[in-house]
């Protein structure tokens, strides 16, 4: 039943690559933003908070269109990046990763922020009296204690990135082998007369990947929780 054609395999592998890159690149930023929002009070905090959550409430097409305006080849930012760093987003898989990363960001940040907020800062004080600088306190106390939230955020972000459709197709279109993810491929297949069986195969693959990600995240979260609460 799961006899995928080379084109379908390409879409599956591309989806995995885009989601993995989007999640991996977003994660350090996500942790930094979560820490800022959880711990610091600064001017414009609520604006930053709103900005991060915007992709969650905006129609994805709007986010995709905004990305097109900002990062298109002829857009100032897109032209600057292309001319100076050779980074091109428009109609490339990297652009799909950018769109997925931005769409997934609020889901990635939230659990991390919550887990950082739940950490007893007295433990961090204790670490500093033992000689740990702020950076070391973060690396050896804050980060390990936030690990369950980081795992949950990564998993949610990855799932969102994997399923992202609207912003991606608006920003980088639906080019087989370059920007055509599983979702876009399924959409395309539903638009042609004899695409049903192929669409169904991709749906099955999609379900398998999502379940595997869920099970893996659950397993990691359990291990992390066991580490935190003693054995």
């Amino acid at each position: 039943m799961l006899d995928l054609s080379p084109e379908e395999w390409t879409a599956v592998m591309l989806s995995l690559r885009i989601a993995a890159v989007a999640t991996a690149v977003s994660l350090p930023f996500g942790i930094a933003v979560a820490y800022l929002l959880a711990r610091k009070n600064f001017w414009g905090k609520s604006v930053l908070d709103a900005l991060i959550h915007l992709p969650l409430v905006l129609p994805p097409v709007v986010t995709g269109y905004l990305l097109l305006i900002a990062f298109g080849r002829k857009a100032p930012l897109g032209a600057f990046l292309a001319d100076n760093f050779g980074i091109v987003f428009s109609f490339r898989w990297t652009g799909a990763a950018l769109a997925c990363g931005i769409m997934a960001f609020p889901l990635l940040v939230r659990p991390i922020r919550l887990s950082i907020e739940a950490i007893d800062t007295k433990l961090e004080d204790a670490a500093s009296t033992l000689g740990a600088s702020r950076l070391w306190v973060f690396a050896t106390v804050t980060l390990p204690l936030a690990l369950p939230g980081i795992i949950a955020g990564t998993m949610l972000g990855f799932a969102k990135a994997l399923g992202e459709f609207g912003a991606t197709i608006t920003f980088v279109s639906n080019i087989p082998g370059e920007t055509q993810t599983i979702s876009a491929a399924i959409y395309t297949l539903t638009q042609v007369p004899d695409g049903d069986s192929a669409a169904f195969r991709l749906v099955i693959v999609s379900i398998i990947i999502s379940l595997a990600a869920l099970i893996a995240a659950e397993w990691f979260a359990r291990r992390a929780a066991a580490r935190l609460h003693g054995n």
């Binding site: 007295k122 433990l123 004080d125 204790a126 500093s128 009296t129 033992l130 000689g131 106390v141 580490r227």
Partner: peptide, 20 residues
């Protein structure tokens, strides 16, 4: 002088051992 450079040991009321 920041806390981590004072080399002053502290035993807290509630222990504050690192749970992880």
């Amino acid at each position: 002088v920041p806390a981590h450079k004072r080399r002053v040991g502290y035993v807290f009321q509630e222990g504050r051992l690192f749970p992880h």
